[in-house]
Design a protein around this nucleic acid. Structure first.
Ligand SMILES: NC(=O)c1ccc[n+]([C@@H]2O[C@H](COP(=O)([O-])OP(=O)(O)OC[C@H]3O[C@@H](n4cnc5c(N)ncnc54)[C@H](O)[C@@H]3O)[C@@H](O)[C@H]2O)c1
Ligand SMILES: NC(=O)c1ccc[n+]([C@@H]2O[C@H](COP(=O)([O-])OP(=O)(O)OC[C@H]3O[C@@H](n4cnc5c(N)ncnc54)[C@H](O)[C@@H]3O)[C@@H](O)[C@H]2O)c1
Lengths: 218, 218
DNA sequence: TAACAATTGTGAATTGATTCACATTCATTT
DNA sequence: AAATGAATGTGAATCAATTCACAATTGTTA
């Protein structure tokens, strides 16, 4: 457990890189590698060895000088930090194009993110079973979120209604929200909100093609 | 046009924020707002006015002191910078869960990202029409990419085959790739590769729930 | 068991991004 | 036409993230 005082200084990028390390370690585990150096870890994700060591050092000393890091053990430790050695009860709101894709994605399940319930306002969808998961009426949102002990909510509804939905989700006491709608949602200070903005990366590519084509990479 | 020397100093975060500004400006345009201040722009995306002004200043002076920025004009300018005032020929490789969602997403079209052709290796899908777009055989990748004058390729195939596919895409001369597979793909220096990693944001939420719950936000 | 090679963990230095603060400019009002 | 108020554009200052560089430690070899 991280001490109260050390909490504030771990950056978002460090956490994102932990996700990458975790992914690499999973691969190394399958390759039956016992240990891995910061150099190798860095190479596999195009980072620097110093970056890897610094990131890990925020959370403890996991390596052995001269040898490197024990693959299985480090994976477990990062898993503990990121909360991947447990399951999370997830609800999905809006089962259209993107919502359906998420439901069909088994990798999330494997990582412990279990979609327990789906909400929609389309009468044709409500009551049906979407890949084995019940589709509930958005009208029963608060009640069902509580009954299913949901911890994380994924928003996949049109941008126009996302703020209304999120207000209800917050009222139901949810503290973690992943939003796919291209809109800046307002939530209270104590609710964690992350946005998945697919257009951004396409737009970055577009920018790069126009502006960086003949120079060095950004 | 940006001068050769100024190219290197514009950060990725600045470009990502331009995307946000563009989105806000589109909304303001619909609300018939003539001008907008850096203060208002900042408020709508939870940024600081200084940040907004600094970001824009990298590309020129678009505002009027005492007044603010002209909404339509600034939108057009940012659109020029990001390449959104034109269309891009996009190819999608892999039309499974996530690929289908992307094809069904009209917002990309509206932004100028036009999916012209889809590739898959599933015989049941090849030859069919997916929402009006032809599904081609992955075997004809290089030929078809060139014929369709594709500029951006979106990878939505299983992680296990993504590197092989990307190698072929690069061979076909494509310089911009958006990858949805959770794997670090290797591409030459002159190819722009962006990754869309949905697990990362879920993992960040998981981390936040465990580690930041009782303290201040990260 | 001593020397060697490898690699960590971490303060210090550096580089990069954000914020500050204010002179400047423009529109409006008197 | 002068005074006022609002808001930009930008160097300088601050804050944050990354990289450097090296002492410390471990496993291996002679
Ligand atoms: N499809 C994509 O690839 C993609 C990519 C990026 C972002 N997004 C965003 O994700 C969101 C969903 O996109 P989509 O393409 O899946 O749209 P969609 O229209 O296919 O799906 C939206 C779903 O939300 C449901 N819904 C609408 N209003 C609701 C309400 N008030 N309560 C509950 N459910 C409601 C609809 O019945 C539908 O099932 C949008 O905000 C979109 O901008 C989608
Ligand atoms: N579904 C999601 O929500 C989601 C989220 C994040 C990341 N991803 C990633 O996106 C990728 C696709 O995921 P998915 O859920 O759509 O998988 P999927 O299995 O539904 O779709 C994959 C598609 O790729 C095609 N394909 C397989 N091998 C191919 C080849 N060699 N050449 C051409 N086409 C080939 C398949 O026929 C299929 O249509 C995966 O890498 C996955 O990890 C998916």
């Amino acid at each position: 457990m991280i001490s109260e005082s050390s909490k504030r200084k771990i950056s978002e990028s460090t956490i994102h890189r932990l996700s990458l390390y975790y992914r690499v370690l999973s691969v190394l585990e399958k390759e039956n590698k016992e240990t891995v150096s910061s150099k190798e870890l860095a190479k596999r994700e195009k980072l620097t060895p110093a970056q890897v060591r610094k990131d890990l050092s925020f959370f403890g000393s996991f390596g052995t000088r001269g040898l490197g890091y024990p693959v299985m053990e480090l994976k477990r430790q990062i898993g503990d930090i990121l909360g991947l050695n447990r399951t999370w009860n997830v609800a999905l709101i809006g089962v259209g194009n993107i919502g359906s894709a998420l439901v069909g994605y088994k990798e999330f399940q494997r990582q412990g993110f279990q979609i327990r319930i789906i909400f929609d306002n389309d009468q044709r969808k409500i009551g049906s079973n979407h890949k084995g998961i019940q589709v509930a009426d958005i009208g029963n949102l608060e009640k069902e979120l509580k009954e299913s002990k949901i911890e994380i909510v994924v928003i996949a509804v049109p941008a126009t209604v996302a703020q209304y939905i999120v207000d209800d989700v917050v009222k139901a006491g949810i503290k973690a929200i992943l939003n796919f709608a291209p809109v800046n949602l307002k939530v209270p200070e104590d609710v964690f909100l992350r946005n998945e903005n697919m257009s951004m990366e396409l737009e970055y590519l577009s920018f790069a093609l126009i502006n960086l084509q003949n120079g060095k990479r950004a």
